[in-house]
Design a protein around this nucleic acid. Structure first.
Lengths: 250, 250
DNA sequence: CAGTGGTCTAGACCACCTC
DNA sequence: AGGTGGTCTAGACCACTGA
């Protein structure tokens, strides 16, 4: 890191970026490059301060932001760790589903299909691919107890998930994002969801055991990995008779 | 503020709270007491540091947290301000609605009814009132251009909104929360929403110009003011043919 | 006990806004 | 020029963890 005081363009402000943000970018690069794996501890603040030749407080501020973004997890007395989807506490970060009454029964993911195809115009646009690029289409059911509550259609770029098959999914007892992270090195860090109410039809109605034409909650999701790169598009059909989508506005 | 180093119970940790959090609580108290009004600047960091007899860095950390919670707004070179719902940028913080295509047309709130009643069991539970306590029931339509997109039924504790009538609503050109804040001194700071898909019926179907039985997005909201006190319960019926509910999972 | 993150301080300087 | 928040540093001490 250049000092004093910190590197910037000649003009007073256009490309100015504070030191701690430059440090943050460096740490981000290391995460992206896999220098530390999900679940691993990263070097201590003082080590990083030496490595980057800045004060500990500056490293601290960089890590603070990354912890706020759920990229890192601080644990006092132990260290700072790379966040991982294998942590059960992070499970409902991407599944805003809660039962109307009672506590949460453990959920079970039932894979139905998983095949390869070429991207149509819509999927290509959502995933930032060329139309015709190889993709994976996967369907699955989410059950709580013996009730099917969510039917998902999931679209993935074929290139990133080379050997993903129905068998792989059936064999895995992990959450989907945990599998993506541990097996394919693709870490989901952010997602955008768009919700609508639609009328149930066809397969979705059947699998969720609701009448044709009855209302379903449609949740369309684009999930992003590092660098805001979209790597999953998903249409989820939620049967909201006994469950609801929970959201907190802060 | 007691020092050194900071006040705490005799035991090593049970009630321990860092200094900056105690400062935060003090600032919160002042906000709650109305010492500074929404939109006003609060004293500078250095002034507060002197007042509370702590370093500026400690005040800074307290304010940081409150800014992250949207209670305060920092503006470099100008000061720190009490957040206000009259700020147009904060309008969509509590309305996660976006058009499927195109830019956002300005919205218009059309009040339909506003009357007083006694709380039933459900409203009483949601608002933390005694059953039978006075409440206000209000209905309104939200239009984008000439399309009615949301029909809201809103329940408020009667005690906090003494003179609220249909006339008051019709006269106001502010957003609802802006009105609550400026006229009744009730500031909404947080809300929880529960979403379901339901079949349209009765008034809602009619007002939103959709067929009976067609799917609508039902958004139930409880909004809270300082101290996590619930002060609004709301059922919103969203017609999601050309609009959707947008949510970001971070 | 040593090592980690967490808190607090004091002081310097920068960036931005207003007068 | 003078005030505000924003960044950066250096150092001290606290709280928590695990050997």
């Amino acid at each position: 890191m250049n000092r004093p005081p910190h590197s910037r363009a000649t003009a007073p402000s256009p490309t100015f970026s504070p030191l701690y943000r430059q440090i943050k970018d460096l740490i981000l690069k290391s995460l992206e490059a896999g220098e530390w794996q999900p679940g691993d501890a990263i070097p201590s603040e003082s080590e990083l301060a030496v490595r980057f030749n800045v004060s500990q407080g500056t490293v601290r501020k960089a890590i603070d932001e990354m912890a706020a973004e759920n990229l890192l997890v601080r644990r006092q007395g132990k260290g700072t760790f790379v966040a991982t989807h294998s942590d059960p506490r992070s499970f409902f970060r991407f599944l805003r589903l809660a039962p109307d009454e009672g506590d949460l029964v453990p959920s079970q993911s039932v894979p139905l299909e998983c095949g390869r195809a070429k991207a149509g115009a819509d999927v290509a646009r959502m995933l930032g691919l060329e139309p015709g690029a190889p993709i994976i289409i996967m369907r699955r059911l989410l059950k709580f107890g013996d009730k099917a509550v969510v039917f998902d259609e999931i679209y993935l770029p074929g290139e990133l998930f080379q050997d993903l098959t129905l068998d792989v999914l059936k064999q895995s007892d992990k959450s989907l994002y945990d599998l993506f992270e541990s097996r394919y090195g693709v870490r989901m860090i952010r997602a955008e969801e768009r919700l609508r109410a639609i009328a149930a039809e066809g397969v979705a109605a059947e699998l969720l055991s609701v009448e044709e034409g009855s209302p379903l909650l449609l949740v369309e999701r684009v999930a992003f990995t590092y660098g805001n790169k979209p790597v999953e598009w998903r249409r989820g059909f939620y049967a909201t008779r006994d469950f609801h989508y929970f959201n907190e506005l802060a």
